[in-house]
C-alpha cells in the first residue's frame, strides 16, 4: 500500500537545488526546480552509488558529483555517460509547508 512520508520542509531546499533524505535504510534526493516544484528520485547514482545531493542542479538536470552523469530529475531518465540506468522517481506533494513523498508497500 502506498504511503506518504514527511521528508522535509519546503524551505529546507533552495530553488534549483537538492537535499538528501534518508528513510528506512534507503536514500532519496529531493529537488526544488527553478519553477518551484518539488521532485523526488533515488538518492544514489546508478553508476557507483554516490549521493546525488552533493551534485549540481541545473534547470531540470542533476549531475552526479563523482563523474558527472546527468539525470532528468523529473523523470529519472539517464541523460549522459557513464550511466544508462535510470533513477526511480517518487511522487511528491506539499502540505502545510512540508514536502511529502509517496513510497510503496513496506518501505
Amino acid at each position: 500500500m502506498p504511503s506518504w512520508i514527511d521528508a522535509c520542509a519546503t524551505d529546507d531546499i533552495e530553488e534549483e537545488d537538492v537535499i538528501r533524505f534518508d528513510h528506512d535504510g534507503a536514500v532519496f534526493a529531493i529537488y526544488r526546480s527553478p519553477d518551484d516544484r518539488f521532485y523526488c528520485t533515488d538518492g544514489l547514482c546508478t553508476h557507483e552509488k554516490v549521493s546525488l545531493a552533493d551534485g549540481l542542479v541545473m534547470d531540470e538536470i542533476i549531475e552526479c558529483p563523482k563523474h558527472n552523469a546527468r539525470f532528468d530529475y523529473r523523470t529519472g531518465e539517464a541523460k549522459a555517460a557513464p550511466v544508462c540506468v535510470n533513477l526511480r522517481t517518487y511522487a511528491t506533494k506539499i502540505e502545510n509547508g512540508r514536502v511529502l513523498i509517496e513510497l510503496m508497500g513496506a518501505q
Binding site: 554516490v50 549521493s51 552533493d54 551534485g55 549540481l56 549531475e63 558529483p65 563523482k66 558527472n68
Partner: peptide, 11 residues
C-alpha cells in the same frame, strides 16, 4: 572529503 568539492569545481 568525498562530495565536498564537486559542485564548486563543476561551476
Amino acid at each position: 572529503p568525498s562530495g565536498s568539492v564537486a559542485k564548486e569545481i563543476r561551476i
